[in-house]
């Protein structure tokens, strides 16, 4: 059965390949899929999954689901932002960390939780979260 890939699927595959979606690639995709660049950019900026900028080596996904909120995710966010000197959605200057708050990681029983790349950290406190980040940074320095 022939399957026409939707624009979203094309973008997902490209991001999977490159880690993010550079503008040039968007133009290329527009040409290849017969969509206007405006439409491609419109789709790429609508969904939170798509990134037009590269992310840091460590992508921190901080859960801001309801359970995490109730259990103190706001404090975690403040502490992480303060520690890294970046805001939600940004990457540290050294390219080491990116912070992204997400709606729900689906591990509500571990709340408040965050994921750094593929590892999940649960039952956090601001101090624990900061310690984890410092450990990673220390590991990088060595």
């Amino acid at each position: 059965m022939s399957e026409k890939k939707s624009l979203i699927t094309v973008l997902q595959e490209k991001q999977e390949e490159l880690g993010y979606l550079p503008m040039d690639e968007l133009y290329k995709i527009a040409e290849e899929t017969g969509n206007s660049p405006a439409r491609v950019l419109g789709v790429a900026t609508f969904y939170t999954q798509f990134r037009l900028q590269p992310v840091g080596k460590y992508l921190i996904m901080l859960c801001k689901g309801t359970a995490c909120h109730v259990n103190g995710a706001d404090g975690l966010e403040k502490a992480i932002c303060e520690e890294l000197g970046i805001a939600d959605g940004d990457t540290t200057e050294d390219g080491l960390f990116s912070l992204k708050t997400v709606a729900c990681l689906g591990c509500c029983s571990l709340s408040p939780a965050m994921m750094i790349n593929d590892d999940t950290y649960g039952s956090l406190t601001p101090a624990k979260a900061v310690a984890i980040l410092r450990d990673i940074r220390k590991g990088e320095v060595q």
């Binding site: 939707s6 979203i8 997902q12 969904y47 939170t48 999954q49 798509f50 709606a103």
Partner: peptide, 12 residues
């Protein structure tokens, strides 16, 4: 009947 998966891209 054919079933296909479409992965959403993050929009509530």
């Amino acid at each position: 009947c054919h079933v296909r998966i479409k992965a959403g891209a993050g929009a509530f």
